[in-house]
Nucleic acid binder design. Structure first.
Lengths: 212, 212
DNA sequence: GTCTATATGGGGATAGAC
DNA sequence: GTCTATCCCCATATAGAC
């Protein structure tokens, strides 16, 4: 299990420095607004090392995207173990909570991914769409289970999920507005709790229209 | 006399062609991902005319932003005339409906503005933040009126508005995901109706927790 | 694995002719 | 108001020395 160990001293030090610098800069300035020179400077490494380790700027973006989603799916799988005894609604809320906190803990990558996802010309868009579909499928399964068990009303799963993702994602896509316009701090614990709570309320209304 | 006349035949033809081409390209590729040469080609005008008419690429973006918001605020002001007899909730829903349809009718500009708003290094960001605050203030006033009149629960206006904007904006920021992941068409009438309806339901839950 | 130096192309903007 | 030609800067990527 050590063969794909990503912590092999100096090499990975450099790779990690590049990834971390790139995440920060892509986050703040956008992918196209960031140059490899900036990344190299921010990471305190030589420019050529970016091409050497990641085959260019796009390679850096792709690694950021894949490790972001892979980490999330791993965490989710861990949480889902032995969750089968819970109700569909409880499982849904647990997944929402995990995702919210995950976004908070990976705020830079979250913002840059969600932003670049809305750019059509980005080459990594297909990768992202694939992950988005996998993301959706996970949440959709829980809702479909709930509908099949009669726990949820027979709603449009797609519509519910879109509303849910809007609530969850937008604040982390545009934290600047959250701070400067709404005077809330998206990185705070209170904000996460509020966001989870609001989303739960919406889901309750949409999925359990009779129960109140 | 004609010093400020913006409808001067050929000049305005050119300016409009540039604006329209820029909106399309900024929308699809992002501001930084679009070159003035591309804009000129798409608009079928000479590259130099962009600098001549708009003092550069950034000037084009600024005009797009200001006319977008100015148009929306004008439409909103027209609608709000003689609305004072309505309840706060009804006024809120009317404003939500107007904004949703406006976003749909100006989908390219909506997406590009909302995306660039999340980029810190964009020079036009201060302009956008200013408009965002004005936008928020309009919706906030209605909610505050409702609270003062005892129609709404004494909620956190900021929190409610953030949830509302998340629902309204996200689908127009990322219409690709809406189409490819959720199989919904954000430009359709049915989608607008659904979005207005979902938002109304959320607002009802948050603002009128007792009434049902 | 890291660095220097360079190749090659494209970016935005403008001077000056028409 | 429009176009041509050009300026200058910066982008990414790589070849080759260490």
């Amino acid at each position: 299990m050590a063969e794909e160990n990503a912590f092999d001293k100096s090499v990975d030090q450099t790779k990690l420095r590049i990834l971390s610098a790139a995440a920060k800069l892509f986050d703040g300035q956008g992918y196209n607004g960031t140059s490899v020179r900036q990344i190299a400077q921010e990471a305190n490494v030589n420019v050529a090392l970016i091409s050497y380790h990641f085959q260019g700027k796009q390679g850096v973006l792709e690694v950021l995207i894949t490790s972001y989603f892979d980490t999330f799916f791993r965490l989710l799988a861990e949480q889902e173990e032995g969750e089968s005894t819970l109700s569909a609604f409880e499982r849904l809320v647990r997944n929402v909570s995990l995702y919210t906190v995950f976004q908070r803990d990976h705020a830079s990558t979250t913002r840059l991914i969600q932003r670049e996802l809305s750019v059509e010309s980005i080459l990594a868009r297909e990768v992202m769409t694939l992950y988005s579909q996998r993301w959706k499928h996970i949440f959709a399964s829980v809702i479909e289970d709930g509908i099949a068990a009669g726990e949820f009303a027979p709603v449009s799963v797609d519509a519910v999920l879109l509303a849910m993702s809007s609530l969850l994602i937008y604040p982390y896509l545009n934290p600047q507005s959250v701070r400067e316009v709404y005077y809330l701090e998206p990185l705070s614990d209170e904000f996460c709790e509020w966001l989870i709570d609001s989303t739960t309320q919406l889901l309750r209304v949409l999925l359990l229209p009779d129960a109140r």
